[in-house]
């Protein structure tokens, strides 16, 4: 064996050892959750470290999906929680992307009075901690009544609150992406007789699909896993979101469930996010770096 080859093999072994160690550390919590979820013995806590516990089954998934949660007296089903979470997250995503795209386009393409003040205020808002938006929204939405009910206590109110905190980042990010699209493309469309609005819809938006997808994904995810505001704003147990329910059964509280059920629900909630993330991964990376750097 030539010394060069031997050196290459040793180097490969070293790299593989290092990366396998990292893999082990990354996978440890994931495997822990999977093994907890599969544990059928209906013990409240595992007492040994095993990947596949004896007699593994999907019982805990069945319980989470089809048995009621004890959050109300009558019990509340996974379907209801899922519906609440979807309403809030999808609503937030649609609202954020629709409002964000039009504003970001103007900030990217026009020079108008108030532009710099506007951009500056978005940066400032990005630095405001989420608890900062939470207090005034809590008070203001408590005062608005819709159909004899405080707006704050409704899912629609929660959606507004999430969109409020998601918008500054969305506009900032989309504007950064629009900046990278050459102006000549729109000008060509205008010469071909398209209106400016037409050019925006038929040229800019299709080209910005990556940035739009990232905006939708991020605002969807913030609604999907947000706990802070939901916990303080909502009062009606029928409006509990998945995130709130997960925390309730995660232990400590009066509704704590066996760990196997907590693990099963964590997996059910993570899977869609994981799938979306891997689908959009390339765009997320480019979107974050482009939007972040450009002024």
């Amino acid at each position: 064996m030539s010394p060069k080859l031997r050196k290459a093999i040793l180097r490969q072994i070293g790299l593989q050892a290092f990366l396998l160690l990292v893999t082990a550390v990354v996978m440890f919590p994931v495997l822990w959750v999977v093994s907890m979820a599969l544990d059928p013995r209906n013990i409240s806590r595992p007492n040994e470290l095993q990947l596949i516990p004896p007699g593994a089954s999907l019982e805990s998934f069945r319980v989470i999906l089809f048995e009621p949660f004890g959050l109300t007296r009558e019990g509340i089903y996974f379907g209801t929680l899922l519906k609440n979470s979807l309403v809030v997250s999808l609503g937030t995503a649609v609202m954020t992307v629709a409002l964000g795209a039009s504003a970001a386009y103007a900030f990217s393409r026009f020079r108008f009075i108030g532009r710099q003040v506007g951009m500056l205020s978005f940066i400032i808002l990005l630095m405001m901690p989420s608890t900062g938006t939470m207090v005034p929204l809590f008070v203001l939405m408590s005062r608005i009544e819709i159909g004899g009910e405080q707006l704050r206590r409704t899912l629609f109110g929660l959606m507004i609150a999430y969109a409020s905190s998601a918008l500054p980042f969305a506009i900032w990010n989309l504007k950064g992406y629009f900046d990278t699209i050459p102006k000549e493309l729109e000008e060509a469309a205008l010469i071909d007789g398209a209106s400016l609005t037409g050019a925006f819809f038929r040229v800019i938006l299709p080209l910005s699909l990556p940035a739009l997808a990232v905006t939708i994904l991020f605002s969807f995810m913030s609604g999907w896993t947000e706990f802070m505001m939901a916990w303080v704003f909502l009062e009606d147990p029928e409006r509990t979101t998945l995130a709130m329910a997960l925390r309730s059964i995660s232990g400590g509280g009066q509704h704590s469930a066996p760990w196997s059920e907590f693990a099963a629900m964590s997996i059910l909630m993570s899977l869609p996010v994981l799938v979306l993330f891997f689908l959009f991964q390339r765009w997320i990376v480019s979107g974050l770096t482009v939007g972040g750097v450009k002024g």
Partner: peptide, 27 residues
């Protein structure tokens, strides 16, 4: 340009004024 720009921003500016800026000032 200013008018056009503001036409684009108007809807989101209006919503943001109500749900983002006003609460911040209120805060």
């Amino acid at each position: 340009q200013n008018l056009l720009a503001w036409a684009y921003i108007a809807p989101s500016a209006l919503v943001m004024a109500v749900i983002t800026f006003y609460p911040q000032i209120y805060q």
